[in-house]
Amino acid sequence: MRLLISGVLVVLSLTVWFWTSQTQRRLVAEAPSLPVNFAHADHRKENCVGCHHNFVDRTGSGLCFDCHERSAEVGHLLEAQFHRLCRDCHMTRQVAGEPHGPTRRCLDCHVADPFP
């Protein structure tokens, strides 16, 4: 029985260790990002700096993914940050009964962008 308990504890510990380790963060940062379909034309009413924060806080001047995917500091937060930015805004609008973008289905956003 002790062997069984030890086994469960070892698996749990290894899982927690791996998913909080730099190795996992590096894996996330190095993994190819999923395609995202985004049209500026659908977001013209939004304040630009709501997304392009680097224009006001001077944290960079390149493309979003230059930091959000490749930076060691925030690369592993890519999914959480972009889901919070896009999905939460869409959901807020949906609850308010306003026109909104995709809120749930991955494939509604994660397809190749048809716009040049």
């Binding site: 791996f18 996992q24 993994a31 999923l34």
Partner: peptide, 18 residues
């Protein structure tokens, strides 16, 4: 239903999926 979710079975999956 949504094959993109296979991403959540890779070692890069977020902690809440683990």
């Amino acid at each position: 239903l949504d094959a993109t979710l296979l991403e959540y079975l890779k070692p890069t999956m977020p902690p809440y999926m683990v």
